[in-house]
């Protein structure tokens, strides 16, 4: 496993040369990512990787992509989506315009999942979905709306478990190894890069989802991101975190109440 000193060298290079600051990322997983990068690109030594990063700016996007973990799923944690469907969307429905922020949305599976639910609740036409991620490569896929066909069986199961009643296949067309989702689902989606470490709040939302991103941050950076969400959320808005994440020990905790069913959904009370 890569040594701390080496990791620090790489991080300071990425930060000073390119403005990507990973210094407050959780170390254990970050080290695994660097190890993986060393293996995937067959570097003989860490020094070689460092040399490449210093001297080849074109290599940077690949580094960012490899250091961040992009794993995602449609309707991942179906019981959470059921809660959104049954308890959150009815509240959002009372607003003339619904603004949602998917922070750290990766390739967009969660965004399409929510769009499907909004459409089924007849709310999509008055919704704006902001889909952001640090990694410009992954968000490209949101415009394409193509997901590997091999995952569809799992997604269909998730969809049904989340309370979906339609024929899931009515939302996409199979094209060889891809499922291409209907373009109307992303008509109200705005895609942009946004770095939770260094970028600011850019709007006010009624619903913010940031799942399985904070696990990659240390506590200090988690608190910073949560404060950013707090500044971007309307009073009585909803904040959704990943199934093993919590805002209990954060500075914003006092203003939030978790839903009674213990899903990772908090409401901003003041």
């Amino acid at each position: 496993m890569i040594q701390d000193e080496d990791l620090n060298l790489l991080l300071s290079e990425l930060s000073h040369r390119y403005g990507y600051d990973f210094t407050n990322y959780a170390r254990a997983s970050l080290k695994r990512r660097v190890n993986r990068l060393l293996a995937v690109d067959r570097f003989a030594s860490f020094a070689e990787l460092l040399y490449k990063v210093k001297n080849d700016p074109d290599y940077l996007p690949h580094v960012v992509e490899q250091l961040t973990v992009n794993v995602t799923e449609m309707f991942r944690d179906p019981s959470l989506f059921r809660t959104l469907r049954e308890q959150v969307l009815p509240v959002l429905a009372t607003h003339p315009l619904i603004r949602v922020w998917h922070a750290g949305c990766s390739t967009g599976e969660e965004v399409y999942s929510l769009a499907i639910m909004l459409e089924e609740a007849n709310l999509l036409h008055k919704s704006l979905l902001y889909a952001t991620d640090i990694n410009p490569t992954v968000i490209e896929n949101i415009r394409r709306g193509m997901f590997p066909i091999g995952n569809i069986r799992q997604y269909t199961e998730n969809y049904l478990q989340s309370g979906g009643r339609k024929d899931f296949s009515s939302y996409y067309q199979a094209q060889y190894e891809w499922a291409k989702f209907d373009e109307r689902l992303r008509a109200n989606t705005i895609v942009a890069t946004h770095n939770l470490v260094s970028d600011r709040s850019f709007n006010e939302f009624q619903l913010i989802l940031c799942r399985n991103v904070l696990i990659y941050f240390d506590k200090e950076l988690q608190d910073k991101a949560l404060t950013l969400f707090d500044n971007s959320l309307e009073k009585l808005g909803f904040l959704v975190l990943g199934s093993k994440e919590n805002l209990r020990f954060s500075p914003i905790a006092a203003s939030y109440t978790q839903l009674e069913n213990k899903e990772k959904v908090w409401r901003k009370m003041r």
């Binding site: 959780a26 170390r27 254990a28 997983s29 794993v71 696990i215 990659y216 240390d218 990943g242």
Partner: peptide
């Protein structure tokens, strides 16, 4: 270890989770 996450030792007194491959 929770289902669907890798379990890591972040520091001597702290766990962390990872959802990677």
């Amino acid at each position: 270890a929770p289902p669907d996450y890798h379990l890591l030792i972040e520091r001597a007194d702290l766990f962390s989770l990872d959802i990677s491959e």
